[in-house]
Amino acid sequence: MPITTTSPARPSLVQRFRSLTEAYLLYVAQKEMVRRYPGAGTPPAPKRGYGLLAVFFLPGFKLTPWAIKKRLLSALFRRPAQHWPDKPWENR
C-alpha cells in the first residue's frame, strides 16, 4: 500500500457524520478546557461546517443523557460482528 493518497476511498454517510461530529465535539470541549485551565492551552481553530453543527447538532447532543447517547453511538457505529466479549477466554 502506498504511504500517501490523494484520492481516498469515498467515505460513507455514517463515516462522514462520525468524523465531522467527533472533531466538532472535541473542538467544543477543547474550548471549555482552555477556559477551565487558563494558560494551559490555546483556543482551537474552528473548521468548516462547525457553525451549522453548533445550531443543528450540539443542542440536541447536549440535552441527550449519556446513557442514551452511549446506546445510540453503539447502535449507529457497531456492526453485529463487533459485539466482542470483554472476557472471551471465559467462554472456552
Binding site: 472535541l26 477543547q30 474550548k31 482552555v34 494551559a40 490555546t42 483556543p43 482551537p44
Partner: peptide
C-alpha cells in the same frame, strides 16, 4: 496545529 495543545485529541491541556 489547529488544536489547542499537544496530543489534544486524547490528552488534556494541563
Amino acid at each position: 496545529d489547529s488544536g489547542g495543545w499537544l496530543l489534544s485529541e486524547f490528552a488534556d491541556a494541563d
